[in-house]
Design a protein around this nucleic acid. Structure first.
Lengths: 330, 330
DNA sequence: ATAAAAACGTCCAATTTTGTCGCATTGATG
DNA sequence: CATCAATGCGACAAAATTGGACGTTTTTAT
């Protein structure tokens, strides 16, 4: 029994394919875990384990402190097994994320999605896929593909707080190589942006990950500008959206049609929204929300389905815009 | 070694907490897997395994064929370990899904998100959270909460093709109990709808999951109406959106501003889109897309940022709508 | 060239595992 | 109510495995 646990811990110590760990390192770590074992034992155990198809581990046969790793990046096995509930939820999440995340990011999770697939199949629930659908409420734009090796370096750089050297091709410009000082990742639309400074300059830039041609980790540590906090940086509106300078809570009053009334009953704008009748076909909606660009987009997207009544400034802004639109289309 | 594998397979056979498996059942399944073992051995093994804190399994002490299960729904352990890459991607997915999925659905995955958390913490990468942000491009409506027990029954009913009895409260009506004949789940906006028939009627209904008060699995098998295919049903537009009757591919020509030009360069409307200059501040975008309601919403949401040039019918529709809006706001 | 480290083969005692048996308990059945 | 079958559990001994010890070989570093 003792040995079972040791096997387990040993398997946990072994990293996945690109990485590896040497036999003496495993020995040392096991001894730190209070296992009184011999190097010989570790060697024997590893050979035994790798012999089983259940544990696809292998070693580098050429180097002399043998280095061990998990071979293929197939779906991980787990205890307890993934339940069918979880499996189904995974597949739903996958459908949801498909149009949102770039393939290389989603690719990091394929192991789990495959595991879910397997689970659903072996449970004879193969028809689940015909029983689930997603109706997107936004236009499916094509997410830009990111070079997987770039993503790997960026992840590592961010996690380890290291800089990296990379070739970046800005729009309509020729590629250039910079030393990037990464500060954070921001997802926006269907793209991922790296918030970073370049070389030793202090101005914060946004670099689209899909525009990096290659990347290589450096060993220089990241320098964070004083007072830089990613969330503040986003909230400030420095981030790509033309966000309003001062976000204020407003009491929104809208005249909406039946369709919107139904929708808002199910997914309210805020916890305390009120809906009352105006006439047979129109309803008054009152809600307290923050006045963001997203709100404006949302309001506009329904066209004549929504009439903004209050706040007055917003109504006037809409009136102005409608005038501009009239000129466009007449 | 043989025994290690047996332990492993045994642990795989044991389900999570609400479910359970009896010792003789385990024995039978093991024997099917060509393990020549005695019942006594299985009993002993289970006791041994449950003694270790690594394997939180327990049995029902009162029943006589003892039934075994995994105790707490804590994060699963897995081999090989979750890599930091995967962990980070999980956390990103979590941030993404947070405003989209109802809590009880997302709750099914917390085990994995927690595992990711743990992984990032033990790797001393605790600051990752300060390095990642999501800027949503749609208005965060509040996802309606679904009673977890209802979700469980619906999942099970769908997977096993069984009906269930449930109390449903339609908008502005008092709750009623029906026998539901589930056909499929559809995510739309931030709500989940069950596509189903009721009792033995044949008309297909859409029932919002969050309006179910309770649910209980029946043992009557699901009856699928002839020719019913969920995806067709959605595509038909029977689904709640007022979708256009015949979806056609159109060649869209838009006059867009700088902001949109940038955005569309990064996340194109279609693979073959073209962007050319009109004047200093405006650009011509050409793309072939399907004419959906989502497209119309998207086009409208940018207000004066987009002028629809072609197809002419679409332009005229926009012109008409602008006229209607003019009346509203003047 | 030399020493140190690692891998690997082998032997054997200590330990663990496992089948068997006996007995107690429980639940179903006649 | 008695009986039987199924299960759990303790004990024991045989069988199997494990793991340390030691020696040899190979590789790496100095």
């Amino acid at each position: 029994m003792e040995s079972l646990l040791r096997y387990f811990d040993m398997l946990c110590l072994i990293p996945k394919a690109p990485n590896s760990i040497s036999t003496p390192e495993i020995l040392e770590k096991l001894q730190n875990m209070r296992y009184a074992v011999d190097l010989r034992t570790v060697q024997r155990d590893l050979v035994k384990l790798s012999a089983s198809p259940l544990f696809p581990i292998a070693n580098t046969e050429n180097t002399k402190p043998l280095r061990w790793f998990w071979i293929d990046n197939s779906s991980p096995m787990q205890l307890p097994m993934m339940s069918t509930d979880e499996a189904l939820t995974f597949k739903l999440a996958e459908m949801f994320l498909e149009p949102l995340l770039p393939p290389s990011v989603r690719g990091r999770l394929t192991g789990y999605f495959d595991l879910a697939d397997k689970r659903l199949k072996e449970s004879k629930f193969e028809h689940w896929i015909e029983k689930v659908g997603v109706v997107p409420n936004n236009l499916p734009l094509l997410p830009a593909e990111i070079e997987p090796s770039v993503l790997a370096v960026v992840y590592e750089a961010l996690l380890k707080s290291l800089r990296f050297k990379a070739t970046y091709q800005a729009v309509n410009k020729s590629p250039k190589t910079y030393e990037i000082n990464p500060l954070g990742l921001v997802f926006r639309h269907n793209s991922i942006y790296l918030v970073a400074t370049i070389f030793d300059y202090t101005d914060v830039k946004q670099l689209a990950l899909h525009r990096f041609k290659d990347a290589e980790l450096s060993d220089r540590i990241v320098l964070v500008p004083t007072d830089f906090v990613l969330n503040d940086y986003i909230a400030q509106g420095s981030f790509s959206y033309p966000v309003d300078n001062h976000l204020e809570e407003i009491t929104l009053k809208l005249k909406v049609n039946v369709f919107l009334k139904q929708m808002l009953l199910e997914t309210p704008l805020c916890a305390k929204q009120k809906i009352s009748d105006i006439d047979e076909k129109h309803y008054l909606l009152e809600a307290i929300v923050t006045n963001t660009k997203q709100l404006n987009w949302w309001l506009r997207s329904f066209g004549t389905g929504i009439e903004v009544l209050e706040p007055l400034e917003l109504r006037q802004a809409f009136a102005l815009e409608v005038k501009a639109l009239s000129k466009m289309y007449c």
